[in-house]
Every structure is written in C-alpha cells, then in structure tokens.
Nucleic acid binder design. Structure first.
Ligand SMILES: [Zn+2]
Ligand SMILES: [Zn+2]
Ligand SMILES: [Zn+2]
Ligand SMILES: [Zn+2]
Lengths: 144, 144
DNA sequence: CAATGTAATGTTATAATGTAACAATTATTG
DNA sequence: CAATAATTGTTACATTATAACATTACATTG
C-alpha cells in the first residue's frame, strides 16, 4: 500500500534542500507511509526494527514535520504522510470517526475565510489547524 | 478577573437542562473561569483545594464539555470557558503564541466554507476543530 | 589525511496528559 | 424506607512527549 514514488520524491526534495534524510528519518517516514491510517508515535516506535527509543522517533518526526513530509493531527495525536510535500501549505483534514481514514484537503475557500476572519481580528496567522471529524462517504453510505 | 454572571448563567442553564452542576464540577468550572489563559487539566488539579485526583478533574471536564460550558483546545491540550454557552455551536479559536491569549470566534463564513468542502467530499461532519496560531493584535503591535 | 566543529543518534530517566477498574458515597425514585 | 442510579473516591496504570548528557557520524578546512 506504500507509494514508493513518494518516498523517492521526498528523498530528492531533501537533497535539493540540502537537508539529510538519514537512515532513522527514512525508517520513520517509511513506517508512516506504509500505514493506511495515521499512526501514533508509539505505534511507530513498536515497528522500529531494530528497536529504537522514543527520542529517536520524536526527533525524526520533528524533522519530517519541519520539512513538510508529514503532518500531525492534533485531535488524534497521530502522524500521516503529506501527499503534496513540494511546497509549504496549509491543509485541512477530514477524519472519519468510523473507519479512521483521513483525507487531506487544500481548500482555498476555507483558507480565504480563515485568513479573512483572522485579519479582521488583527491577528497574523502562522499556522492553522483544521480537523473535521465525522463520517466519510464510504461509511456514511453503509447505512446509519 | 472572573465573570460571576457567567457562572450564575451556567448554573441556571444546567438547572433548565435537568443536569447537575455539582460541587466538584462547579469547582473545576470556577478554576477555569478564574484563569486568564487556557488551563491544562493538571493545572486545574493543582488548584483544587481541597485536593483531588485526576479522575475527578477529568470527569468534571467531560461534563462541562458535554454541556458546552467549556471548550478544549486540541493544539494546547488545555481548557477554557465558553463565552456563549447557551446553544450548541462550532467555534474557531485564535491562539496567540506570544501571550497565550485565546479568542473564540463564531464566524459563519468559516463555518460555511468548512461545511461546503466537507459535503463536496461526501463527508458528514460531527465536530470541527479550527485553531489558528499566530500573533494577536496586541503582540503584533509591540514591534518586531 | 588529521584536526576540528557540527549534526545526528544513543541512552537513561522523567514529565505531562489521560484512563481503567472498582469501592464508597450521595442523590433520586417508587 | 428500599432500590436504583448518579456521582465521587482511590489506586493503579496507560499514553504521549521531553530533558539531559554521552557518543557517534559527518563535514570542513588547513
Ligand atoms: Zn500536505
Ligand atoms: Zn469512514
Ligand atoms: Zn463557545
Ligand atoms: Zn498576544
């Protein structure tokens, strides 16, 4: 279920940026990529083979977040790959409470409405968290 | 700095709804109201006098959240009073990274854009988390 | 290459947030 | 009052994340 092309893409991206996608960082990234659902830091930790300690995982996560290769869901305290890691972007997430699937959106209308409301309040945004919980189209289709 | 009228309002609201704003729940609510900034569960715990154990605080928080008397900020893992607890509502929060102040908004444009994007994806929302980090108008004004 | 400085990792311990499970108590109802 | 339900007390533990310091790998430059 992993997209190998995405990993290669991320590697090239890091090379272009002059940052190092080291062994540990790549291992963590691969674990996240191989998961069909967002994974917690300790889920990743368990899948580390050979084993690792929490700081190793969290450092890798920090790096991957900084490089925009993954996102963190604040409501789930879990991590998932970014599908469009080329440019820095603000995403919105649709999180299905039933199957756990998450869809990453980049909706410009949402973006505009957020920026407008913030600027009207004199607020200058640095980061926007939008996480919508509910039922995805598949789960909603399967009856109540 | 606490709004006593809000506490009275919340008490009446609970009475109307036939739910019990018990002693422990009121103590937790008052602690949150008295704090100028969002408070963590363990901050509340420390302020409980006479002392209490974590489950006591979390149960009270669960109740207050269910009744809509407080909100939880997923990004901060902290709690703050709702200023308009009368009707169930979706809020958006402006969180200042500098001073920690949080402003609760109920922006209908944001609401609409979220609902539209979700429905276009066939997604039925149950709960929406919108937390915008940045600098508030005061802190942005104070130079650099 | 050797010396040096920087970046990354290893390791141990601990902090911070939240919950499970069951007993005891209090409030409500018939 | 007896029975029931709701709330609270208590202990222990689960989960998520970080601090602090030692060690290793990498890069730079003389
Ligand atoms: Zn993305
Ligand atoms: Zn689903
Ligand atoms: Zn509110
Ligand atoms: Zn501020």
């Amino acid at each position: 279920m992993m997209r190998h092309d995405l990993l290669i893409h991320d590697e090239q991206l890091c090379k272009q940026r002059g940052v190092r996608l080291t062994c540990q960082r790549r291992r963590v990234l691969k674990i996240i990529m191989q998961s069909p659902l967002p994974v917690g830091a300790y889920d990743i930790l368990q899948k580390m083979d050979p084993p690792a300690a929490p700081p190793t995982v969290y450092r890798a996560l920090d790096f991957l977040l900084q490089q925009g290769l993954i996102h963190r869901l604040a409501t789930l305290q879990a991590y998932l790959v970014c599908e469009h890691p080329d440019a820095s972007h603000q995403s919105q997430f649709l999180i299905c409470s039933e199957c756990g699937q998450v869809e990453e959106m980049e909706d410009s209308n949402i973006q505009k409405s957020l920026d407008l409301a913030a600027s009207q309040a004199g607020f200058s945004c640095s980061n926007e968290v939008v996480e919508i919980m509910g039922r995805c189209v598949q789960c909603a289709g399967e009856g109540h």
